[in-house]
C-alpha cells in the first residue's frame, strides 16, 4: 500500500458542538479530562461556539510544509510521511520559536513545569501509522470531522460545495493557506466571520526564511572579499607611507589617553 498523507476534513455545517472530539482526544492521549476553553498544553482540541449556532473546532492543522518544523533549530518537530506533525521532547531546548512561527497559534508550552514540553495535537500519530482513523474523527457522531488521505478529502470537500452551494461558503480553508494544511475546513459563512486568520499567504511560510538563509554563503563570500580587500588596500597605503618616512623624522606619536 502506497503511503498517503492523511488529514481531517472538518465541516462546520455539520458540527453540533457536542465536544465528543475533545473528550476522545483527552482519553486517547492520556490527558487530564478537564477541557480548557482554548488550546493549552493539556487540551489539544477545543470546540468554540460562535454566534448563530456555529461550532468551530481548533487544533493543529498539520501543515503540508509547517512553519513550526522549519523553525525548530534542533528538528524536535517533524512532519511524518503519513501526515502528522510530531514532537520529540528529548531534543527540544524549549526556545518556543515554534510557537512564534505557527500561523495558527497551536503549539502550547508547559509554563509551570520545571521540565516543560511543547504540546499539541499529533494527529493521533501512533494510530494513523497503523492505518487507523484519529480518535476525534472516530468519536464524531455527525461526521463533521472525517479522517482520510488529504487528496480524497479535498475531492470530498469540493463535491460537497458543488452539491449544495447554498449550504457552503465557496472556500476550502486549508487548501492553499500557508501552502496547504492537512486539516481543512468547510463553513457556511465566510471564514473571517468565524475569526479564522484570513490574512495568510498561500505559500509555505518557510519559503520566506529559507529564501533569506539561502543567501548566507553569498554574503559570507562577498563580505570576506570586501573586508580582505579593504585590509589590503588600507594597510598597503600605510606601508608605502612608512617606507617614504624612513628617511625623515618618525611620525609624531599619537596622544596617549592616560
Amino acid at each position: 500500500m502506497a503511503i498517503k498523507s492523511s488529514g481531517l476534513l472538518i465541516d462546520i455545517t455539520r458540527c453540533i458542538g457536542c465536544g465528543a472530539c475533545s473528550d476522545a482526544c483527552k482519553e486517547i492521549n492520556d490527558l487530564p479530562p478537564e477541557i480548557d476553553d482554548k488550546l493549552t498544553a493539556e487540551t489539544w482540541t477545543v470546540v468554540r461556539e460562535k454566534d448563530n449556532d456555529l461550532h468551530v473546532r481548533d487544533l493543529c492543522r498539520h501543515c503540508v510544509e509547517p512553519a513550526c518544523v522549519a523553525s525548530c533549530l534542533v528538528a524536535a518537530l517533524t512532519k511524518t510521511e503519513h501526515g502528522p506533525v510530531i514532537y520529540d521532547k528529548s531534543v527540544c531546548i524549549g526556545c518556543r520559536y515554534c510557537m512564534v512561527a505557527c500561523p495558527f497559534q497551536v503549539p502550547c508550552f508547559e509554563w509551570h513545569s520545571p521540565n516543560p514540553r511543547i504540546r499539541k495535537c499529533i494527529l493521533c500519530e501512533p494510530r494513523v501509522r497503523e492505518g487507523k482513523s484519529t480518535g476525534c474523527a472516530e468519536a464524531c457522531p455527525t461526521e463533521a470531522t472525517v479522517f482520510g488521505d488529504r487528496e480524497t478529502l479535498v475531492e470530498m470537500a469540493r463535491a460537497r460545495i458543488k452539491a449544495d452551494p447554498k449550504r457552503y461558503h465557496d472556500h476550502i480553508y486549508g487548501l492553499d493557506e500557508v501552502g496547504g494544511t492537512a486539516v481543512m475546513f468547510l463553513s457556511p459563512v465566510p471564514f473571517e466571520d468565524l475569526d479564522f486568520n484570513t490574512d495568510l499567504v498561500n505559500y509555505p511560510l518557510s519559503d520566506i526564511t529559507w529564501n533569506i538563509l539561502r543567501q548566507v554563503p553569498t554574503i559570507v563570500a562577498g563580505g570576506a572579499v570586501f573586508l580582505g580587500a579593504s585590509y589590503w588596500l588600507f594597510n598597503r597605503r600605510e606601508k608605502v607611507k612608512q617606507a617614504e618616512q624612513v628617511v625623515g623624522p618618525g611620525p609624531k606619536k599619537e596622544a596617549d589617553d592616560v
Binding site: 522549519a70 523553525s71 534542533v74 528538528a75 526556545c95 538563509l213
Partner: peptide, 13 residues
Amino acid sequence: RVITNPNIHSPLY
C-alpha cells in the same frame, strides 16, 4: 543538541 541535531532551515539554528 544544536550541534548534534542541526536544522539548517531554521534561522534560530
